[in-house]
Design a protein around this nucleic acid. Structure first.
Length: 453
RNA sequence: UCCAGAGUAGCUCAAUGGUAGAGCAGCCGGCUGUUAACCGGCGGGUUAGAGGUUCGAGCCCUCUCUGGAGCCA
């Protein structure tokens, strides 16, 4: 019966007759015996196995090269040398699968760019093992956060006919051959369809029935953006709350960011040591910053005034009425407030139709949560629940209410104030791990010109 | 679409315009406790591709290709 290395290393007493299976990270030979480091991905640390030349299977030691898969039976004993608490004294070793000299991963450091070209093997590296263990734990933490608060998980559709806010360029989904711009009525769904860019509108319909809901699923953007923060396929988290206003929305968003930072500190501690050493020396400090410092809230107009008074020369000028650039966002959180910041009440002109118009007629109940190092991690709003005003907003944005008839219906039948937000899971992971490129926090990145694997 | 830097051994990188090198990996040998082990030896190259300048180009020039960064949601 196999024991995972994370459980082996957590032992408090010596143990006899353990079976460990994994991949060789490195081997050090001495006369008469070898040290073999085995990693099975269950934790960052590898297990040191001591193999005497006389044990069954040791004749194959020559092929216990980096990358080979092996199975080892032996006894766990306290290690007599410094460097590790436990080691496995092998009684029998078995080579399961060889890895010849062409195995590309080595004991020395590799560039992230090179590792992307071997995305099928990079999970066997320390960094990517840590990244994807953390990704898994954080995905669980997202569900835990909402489930504990009585939110209901909704699986919103991946194929959709609505383009939500015109959030971005969309991928077409079609079975039309030859002429994809032909008669939409002849297509599979009898109309033009796309991969979703957001589940928000559908989530709103469920919030207007189940009260508090959230989505957590893949979304797609067909934009030709080649940056460290954009991918064509990414995972988005979108809670939506009925009988909730902007203040309640900000409460939830801030609690969420803090909970994710705290979860990382508490449950990904070993992997975090790696991120701290090799990726971003300040990552732990940044997480503590978010956990410990109270969030500051500031209206958009005041944020602009602060930026204008700052005396700082930004690459992009601060223009009232325009979106904040990420350098502006970072100034607010890193230098001015020295705390996580929530900016709210943005100009109507730069925000989508579904956001609730404020009494001033010029701003909407939008909010962005800003954190150090990244800038915006969350964007959300209270939604426009008044039928007349929603129709007016759509007119303002030149949208046809007929295309959104079911969304408009929500305001016709038992409308309620409601609010929600969205955040990209990968952007959150970048913030929590310090990893600087979105391609390195998703198993197989989809970016323009790249869909290998 | 625009700007900057880069491409040399399987990997990470060197090399004033003058004989292409090191470490790791691989192969062979040594070492009784190693820690990305160490010591000795061996093999490994169309310097991304094409063209040009030069007595001579990895290095200078032109084009092409690839990747990264920024802008853009």
């Amino acid at each position: 019966m196999r024991t995972l290395i994370r459980h082996v290393l957590a032992s408090t007493t010596p143990r006899e007759g353990l079976t460990v299976q994994g991949w060789v990270r490195t081997r050090r030979d001495s006369k008469g015996f070898s040290f073999v480091e085995i990693n099975d991905g269950s934790c960052l640390a590898s297990l040191q196995v001591v193999v005497d030349a006389s044990v069954p299977g040791a004749g194959q030691m020559h092929d216990f090269t980096t990358g080979a898969s092996v199975s080892v039976q032996g006894d766990l004993v306290a290690s007599p040398a410094a460097g590790q608490r436990w080691e496995l004294r092998a009684r029998r070793v078995e080579l399961v699968g060889k890895a010849d000299a062409s195995f590309p991963l080595q004991k020395k450091g590799h560039t992230l760019e090179f590792l992307r070209t071997i995305a099928h093997l990079r999970p066997r590296s320390n960094l990517f093992g840590a990244v994807f263990r953390t990704r898994s734990r954080l995905a669980h933490a997202v569900h835990q956060f909402f489930q504990e608060r009585d939110f209901i998980h909704v699986h919103t559709p991946i194929i959709t006919a609505s383009d939500c806010e015109g959030a971005g360029e969309m991928f077409r989904v079609t079975t039309l051959k030859g002429n994809v711009d032909g008669d939409p009525a002849a297509d599979f769904f009898g109309r033009r369809t796309y991969l979703t860019v957001s589940g928000q509108l559908e989530a709103e319909t469920f919030a207007c029935a189940l009260s508090n809901v959230y989505t957590f699923g893949p979304t797609f953007r067909a934009e030709n953006s080649n940056t460290a923060r954009h991918a064509a396929e990414f995972w988005m988290i979108e809670p939506e709350m009925a009988f909730c206003d902007l203040a309640g929305d900000m409460d939830l968003a801030e609690a969420f960011v803090q909970a994710m930072a705290r979860h990382t500190l508490e449950h990904c501690a070993e992997d975090l040591t790696l991120f701290e050493r090799f990726v971003d020396k300040e990552v732990r400090q940044r997480l503590a910053f978010v956990v410990e410092r109270p969030f500051q809230r500031v209206p958009y107009a005041e944020a602009v005034a602060i930026l204008q008074r700052s005396g700082k020369s930004f690459e992009f000028p601060v223009e009232p009425g325009a979106n904040l650039q990420s350098e502006h966002e970072r100034y607010l959180t890193e230098e001015h407030f020295k705390a996580p910041v929530t900016v709210f009440n943005y100009p109507r002109t730069i925000k989508p139709f579904y956001m609730r118009l404020n009494d001033d007629g010029a701003t909407v109940t939008a909010m962005d949560v800003l954190v150090p190092g990244i800038g915006e991690v969350i964007g959300g709003s209270q939604r426009e629940e008044r039928l007349d005003q929603l129709l007016d907003n759509m007119k303002f944005q030149k949208l046809d209410p007929k295309d959104y008839w079911w969304y408009v219906d929500l305001r016709r039948y038992g409308t309620v104030p409601h609010a929600g937000f969205g955040l990209g899971f990968e952007r959150l992971l970048m913030f929590l791990t310090g990893v600087g490129n979105i391609r390195d926090v998703i198993p197989f990145a989809r970016t323009p010109g790249n869909a290998e694997f």
